[in-house]
């Protein structure tokens, strides 16, 4: 440690703290205040918990919560796919670097780009259905985006398509740092490929997997706005309404009711807060693994 005057550290911290107070500090306090007011324009009278009462009564909000909940089903699917692909890559088969680079590409592409491409492919007469019809699978040529029953699952598929690459790279980095001796010992003991996977590889990768699961849960609850906004705008009807879009619509679109939106923002904030503790416990655990 450097020996410094007592004020010196705070001089170094000051610009950072100012920026953080502006973007996080003030807004995270203000959002609670806004959620208790009937806001028109930039302020309004205090109305207690009225906004929360409104939100909890609103069927569209219920739908949004259910939809975010359904999107959580993508988490085990993504984790499974990413883990399998990472395991297939980790003992460096021919061309593993090329596979890794290509499988990571979706994650580099911007969500709006991905959204526009998929919404064109998945139109009723788009290339996907055309392809299905051409091989005689007319039954599967569905209205992927236009049908209220399918639209949310379509969104989920696109999210999985884009986010799996991140999991692969994350798992692969961890797998490659596993002690080779452990695997060799298992091999000498006659453990099969599956046994090595379940008894050596997965336990060694446990905290990175858990970390990815928690990050993905947060993604599904609070970072899917761009997918929904570009592909369906929440529709058809409210079939793909999610909490973020609900906030956006109430605050900045037709209704202009920031009070209601703020109440939902507070709820969303508290939900992510609940995941913060396990996340940081896991991160420090995976750093420990990395070092050992």
């Amino acid at each position: 440690m450097l020996r410094t005057a007592r004020l010196t550290p705070w001089l170094y911290l000051a610009p950072m703290l100012l920026v953080l107070i502006f973007t996080f500090g003030y807004p995270l306090v203000a959002i609670f205040d806004f959620s208790l007011r009937r806001i028109r324009g930039i302020s309004g009278p205090f109305i207690g918990l009225e906004n929360y009462r409104q939100v909890i009564k609103d069927d569209v909000f219920h739908e949004a919560v259910v939809h975010n909940g359904i999107l959580l089903l993508a988490v085990p699917i993504m984790t499974f796919i990413a883990l399998i692909l990472a395991v297939l890559l980790f003992d460096r088969p021919r061309g593993w670097q090329a596979y890794r680079s290509l499988l990571y590409v979706p994650f580099i592409l911007a969500t709006p780009v991905v959204g526009v491409i998929f919404s064109n492919m998945l139109q009723l007469n788009g290339v996907v259905n055309e392809g299905l019809r051409s091989i005689g699978l007319d039954v599967l040529a569905l209205d992927w985006i236009g049908s209220p029953r399918l639209a949310l699952w379509t969104i989920m598929g696109v999210v999985i398509w884009r986010e799996v690459g991140f999991g692969i790279v994350l798992f692969l980095a961890r797998l490659m740092s596993i002690n080779e001796d452990l695997l060799d010992a298992a091999r000498v003991d006659g453990a099969s490929w599956w046994q090595r996977l379940w008894h050596v590889i997965v336990p060694q990768t446990k905290s990175v997997i858990e970390f990815f699961i928690v990050v993905s849960i947060i993604t599904m609850l609070a970072w899917v706005f761009a997918y929904v906004y570009v592909i369906t705008h929440g529709g058809p009807g409210t079939a793909t309404m999610v909490m973020e879009l609900y906030i956006y619509n109430f605050a900045f679109r037709m209704s202009q009711l920031p009070g209601i939106a703020s109440a939902v923002a507070v709820i969303l904030f508290l939900v992510t807060l609940a995941f913060m503790v396990p996340l940081f416990r896991l991160r420090s655990a995976s750093e420990m693994e990395e070092m050992s």
């Binding site: 953080l20 807004p27 973020e244 940081f280």
Partner: peptide, 24 residues
């Protein structure tokens, strides 16, 4: 620890106060 944990707070939570602050 507090600053690191801000990483996962979704921007949509801050957006309404930020919009009003910037407007003001």
């Amino acid at each position: 620890a507090v600053i690191s944990s801000l990483m996962i707070v979704p921007p949509v939570v801050m957006l309404i106060p930020l919009f009003i602050l910037l407007t003001r």
